[in-house]
Nucleic acid binder design. Structure first.
Length: 420
RNA sequence: GUGAGCGUAGCUCAAUUGGUAGAGCCCCUGGUUGUGGUCCAGGUGGUUGCGGGUUCAAGUCCCGUCGCUCACCCCA
């Protein structure tokens, strides 16, 4: 036997019927996001490595150790996208999308890649649903984006999810705070973990959400970010909260929430879920006012989020499946010496009438066909034998009741439709 | 990248102190020359993840490797 080839580590096949949930989630995303004026964008899976280094940030784990990168035949360094925002921002700049008026609202559904050790809720190929609102600096946009996110999750049947909210201030505020935090932590250097010590230089804010208990204690006395917010940043956050309160969006302020990507400014947020083990973040996002300019575009502010589709689908409420299960098709079966073309034609006739039809072309016994139809949960079987075809009729069997009648094709179609 | 646990039929799992692999489900066929869900009978399906070692003998013990799972880290 030849050696079997299996899927690449950290990637997985999504098989039917599970794919129905995926498609249903995506349909609902298109519908909900569409109702807020968002248009779908599809960016390449492959980008120049440079894009992520410049946007996500050199000091981040994503760029530092998780990128799925390789050289192409001409020696150019390419990377399978590890997140969605960078590519969308790149496309915005490349196509001068701002020239047709701002803001631009976009969403993107598709796979992302990170070279990590797989575990539950973490795969090398995973899937995100991104939404980005580009070109409006106002807190009302922040609130509307979050509102849309919450509505989407509600549509899927989630009702217990809470948005964790924080602000990391604008660049000036963050700069001032960063200095204060480093001044505070520097004398305590010896008591910090290796990771945190490294971050003292590269990305001090990330130390804030360290999970090391000792560090948590040390941080109790650390300067607080909100004391360093300038007037503008403070007002912005205040306005976001007021808008969310007004719309009845539940959130919890999480002062330690900072986010792993360099490009965030001001509003940042996250949603974590129960029952997912340690990979429990299902949504992350925030404002990125400097990113587009950083990528050579105009100085245009933006805000967005990414939903982890794999994790989301993992914890979808039970009731969700009922809503996306399809009506099992009518089973069309030949009995005896029947011209296969006549069977195919009959199938087409039923489909033209709007029915879903599964044709049993296996040439096996009627008994076997019935078993299959039964297992598929079908309600109807249309049986076409020599006798029936000769008279222009079919045998219509109601599998639920076990009743069978000889009727014309038209009558059969009418009967099936009537009971649907 | 680090650590731990686990790899036996398509799936879920057995196999005693090492003694040449078995069940249930699924699938196929028949019991019904064209009739399901129950039942009965039969059948297909395995180089025990892969490679090496110890042994008279390895699914079982040892080493390596690959994969899966979980945790750390990080994040979606």
């Amino acid at each position: 036997m030849a050696k079997k080839i299996q899927s690449v580590k950290g990637t997985r096949d999504l098989l039917p019927p599970a794919t129905r949930r995926w498609a249903a989630v995506e349909e609902i995303a298109r519908e909900v996001f569409g109702s807020y004026g968002y248009g779908e964008i599809r960016t390449p899976l492959l980008e120049h490595t440079e894009l992520f280094v410049r946007s996500v940030g050199e000091a981040t784990d994503i760029v530092g150790k998780e990128m799925y990168s390789f050289d192409d035949r001409k020696g150019r360094s390419l990377t399978l996208r590890p997140e969605g925002t960078a590519g969308i921002a790149r496309a915005f700049v490349q196509h001068a999308m701002g020239s047709s008026g701002l803001p631009i609202k976009l969403f993107c559904i598709g796979p992302q890649f990170r070279y990590e050790r797989p575990q539950r809720g973490r795969y090398r190929q995973f899937h995100q649903i991104d939404a980005e609102l580009i070109g409006d600096p106002g807190p009302t946009s922040d609130a509307e984006l979050l509102l849309m996110l919450v509505r989407f999750l509600e549509r899927l049947g989630f009702d217990e999810l809470t948005v964790l909210l924080n602000t990391v201030g604008d660049e000036a505020s963050r700069g001032a705070y960063r200095e204060a935090l480093v001044d505070f932590l520097e004398p305590l250097r010896d008591r910090l973990s290796g990771d945190s010590r490294r971050r003292l230089e590269s990305n001090p804010l990330r130390i804030l959400d360290s999970k090391v208990p000792v560090e948590q204690e040390l941080l109790e006395a650390a300067p607080r970010l909100d004391d360093y917010l300038n007037r503008e940043s403070g007002d912005h956050f205040e306005a976001v909260r007021r808008a969310l309160d007004g719309c009845g969006v539940a959130y919890r302020i999480e002062p330690r929430l900072v986010r792993g990507l360099d490009y965030y400014s001001r509003t940042v947020f996250e949603i974590v879920a129960e029952g997912l083990g340690s990979q429990d973040a299902i949504v992350g996002g925030g404002r990125y006012d400097g990113l587009i300019e950083e990528l050579g575009g105009p100085a245009v502010p933006a805000i967005g989020f990414a939903i982890g589709q794999d994790r989301l689908i993992d914890i979808l409420p039970e009731a969700f499946d009922a809503g996306c299960s399809a009506e099992p098709p009518v089973h069309l079966v030949a009995a005896g010496e029947v011209d296969p073309v006549a069977l195919l034609e009959l199938g087409e006739e039923l489909r033209t009438a709007g029915l879903a039809v599964e044709t049993e072309v296996g040439g096996r016994s009627v008994k076997a066909a019935l078993k299959r139809a039964d297992k598929a949960g079908a309600r109807w079987m249309v049986l076409a034998g020599e006798d029936e075809l000769g008279r222009g009729e079919v045998a219509l069997r109601d599998l639920a009741l076990g009743e069978q009648i000889q009727v014309s094709r038209e009558t059969a179609i009418a009967k099936i439709k009537e009971k649907e």
